[in-house]
């Protein structure tokens, strides 16, 4: 079972208490036209999905309600790092067709 200490409220929560927000993405642009169509395709549909360390968003849903970022190994489920969002920036996903 995945157990993570929330970096905001410092309480340990298990996976059912942490809302999963998906693989982390860069902030959504305030103006949609800042991204090209291929960039939107990448942002909407493509994720890095590694067999190894991935950065994901989780929310301390049963506790303080704040979002944070987790670096987790998808093969072992080991938690490698936990931090509030600005501390773990991520690139925009690439796309193909």
């Amino acid at each position: 079972m995945i157990v993570i200490r929330c970096p905001h409220c410092q309480v340990e929560r298990h996976e059912d208490e942490l809302f999963y927000g998906g693989e982390a993405l860069p902030p959504r642009p305030s103006d949609p036209l800042q991204l090209s169509d291929p960039e939107w395709t990448g942002r909407l549909f493509f994720r890095s999905n590694p067999e190894g360390a991935v950065i994901e968003d989780r929310c301390c849903a049963a506790g303080c309600g704040h979002w944070f970022r987790v670096r987790r190994c998808t093969a072992s489920h080991a938690i490698l790092d936990v931090a509030p969002p600005p501390a773990m920036p991520v690139p925009l996903p690439e796309f193909s067709s």
Binding site: M1, I2, E15, D16, Y20, R47, E56, T74, A75
Partner: peptide
């Protein structure tokens, strides 16, 4: 399970 995983093993929740 909603989060990404390649683990091929189960989770208690």
């Amino acid at each position: 399970d909603l989060y990404q995983s390649f683990s091929q093993r189960g989770t208690y929740p």
